[in-house]
Design a binder for these strands. Sequence first.
DNA 1: TTGTAAGCGTTATCAC
DNA 2: GTGATAACGCTTACAA
Lengths: 353, 353
Amino acid sequence: MLQMGNPAARTTSRHGRRTSKIVDVARLARVSTATVSRALTQPQRVNADTLHRIEAAVKKLRYVPHGAARALRTRRTRTIGTVIPTLGNAIFANYTQALQQRLETYGYTLLLVCNEYDPRSEIDLVHPLIERGVEGMVLVGGDHLPQLFQMLDEYQIPYVLTWVWDQAQSRPCVGFDNRQAAAGVANFLLDLRHTRIAMISGITTGNDRARERVIGVREALTARGLSLAASYLLETPYTITAGREGMRALMRLSPRPTAVICGNDVLAIGAITECHSLGVEVPKQVSITGFDDMEMASTTLPPLSTVRVPTEDLGRSAADYIIARVTGHESIVNKELAVDLIIRGTTGPPPGS
Amino acid sequence: MLQMGNPAARTTSRHGRRTSKIVDVARLARVSTATVSRALTQPQRVNADTLHRIEAAVKKLRYVPHGAARALRTRRTRTIGTVIPTLGNAIFANYTQALQQRLETYGYTLLLVCNEYDPRSEIDLVHPLIERGVEGMVLVGGDHLPQLFQMLDEYQIPYVLTWVWDQAQSRPCVGFDNRQAAAGVANFLLDLRHTRIAMISGITTGNDRARERVIGVREALTARGLSLAASYLLETPYTITAGREGMRALMRLSPRPTAVICGNDVLAIGAITECHSLGVEVPKQVSITGFDDMEMASTTLPPLSTVRVPTEDLGRSAADYIIARVTGHESIVNKELAVDLIIRGTTGPPPGS
DNA sequence: TTGTAAGCGTTATCAC
DNA sequence: GTGATAACGCTTACAA
């Protein structure tokens, strides 16, 4: 790793500033620093004439306020922190972009870290965020170490959980009911008279969304007098390769499942691809359904049915929520987002029915 | 938009801190604040015994240094800014994640904004970054308003351009030669005896990567006595739908192109999908090649040939470079990354040859 | 409407 | 090896 510091060798940059500060503006505009400050943050509280002089001075000197000094004094950083599993999954990338852009409209900046689905690392990741004074935190899911919540409480940092919706859970969240959505998929297949339904799930450890989806499927099956056999439930990482391997394993079973529910669309893509290379016809011989929805999956892989999660909406709503909390609008209520069970392509009944 | 501010109504959060500060630690450890500060930043410069007392105090009080105060005093924010086109494209998402994670190992935080391929908006986007004191900037491509470079120079913020490699350009960059890579694709097709080669390019305005790729193709054709006819060159946004429409338009031409080079893989996926629904066989009737490479494209769409860009490498290298600059290791040289022309699937010769 | 001046929490300088 | 103290650049009572 590189050696840090060595300030002696540094060229003067923004913070080793040769740039102008508020006093320079004040001098040039022939006012006090207080007036400049006011002109910048509450222009209506300053005489139109002096305001013009100040603005001219600001422009001339290319003055940019020093964020750290301002934050130190006002105790507000206008920064929100978030930790997501990964940017490698399109749904989180889209979600994050929406979140960031919405925060931007509020004048807030997003501080982003990825934990690669490892809840233990969150503590280490969040520490620097707290040090940088994030005013609020946006978390994905509800599976976090108690220690993390303790930290947030300790430093009184408001937070919101996203991608989940738990009426019972006392923590604020913006999201949808993963269990119910998964049950919807299962019921859809059951209505088509599928009885041998298998599932390729994501890793459920530390991932309540994945877990809830399994529970939803299991419950739906049980409600119809069926069950999710151990050999019909696979738990794999969210990769295309894992989806392929999972599907191959399932297709080796006898009896074969007639329908496979994938924990997300990455797995579903892998599953369909594997069927192609196995010569298994989709959906004639086996129906495949996905989750989360990516444009690519639904556009290029027609035999895939999918549950569409409104990722951008989630990001925007999370931003709205946390900003409301941070700015003291406590009257906000949790928001549940609707999740459409969209059947694209041609998921069909089981073979021979 | 929400009203900001209203500090009166705010609950005390991190920065309206009830949290302990360095004096509290100092008192508890019975030392001065100076010693605590030293213990935190240069432990070797403090007596082992006192160090222990201080560490105990820090742990007990759950002391976290105040980043803004530290930044104000040291003039270092340990923050790098970056502006990317979008997180909606997997290659930039992966790249960004690699960049962020590498910066993290240096103790640096990434401040990320997206400009949706609009160079004009960059100025507005970068302003807040400067205000927040980014020590360096990572930019995508070389197409930026002069005004942007002026700003960076003005505030003496080191920067690096990525995804491009321009020996002639005096600006520091970490990347690869888009023109040469595109020429490689064209030559590959020419070697297969294709003569009617079309291109579906991304929007070239404000996007030198896209522009260079067109030039590369054009030059390769010209070198063989061919040319890129106006009707054979389409310029569309980087979306699957646009790729489909572009391909449809090309397939209506007569004579039809026997090979289509797509400006990136998103377009290529659209193009292949359209061929599927048109009943045009790939690569028997038309060969399709992509750019940038996404796992999904190469895994699920075998008839696609693709130029693989090492996105993670780019992110890491950019991080290494900018950190070196920021920490004063000026001896760094530009780094060109190799780009493999990987032919996956079965791009073939033109029909009837 | 504007100016004066006291901090915000940290680190760096300089003594000891 | 440690301590006192003066900044860092800004905002905000409080005065005028």
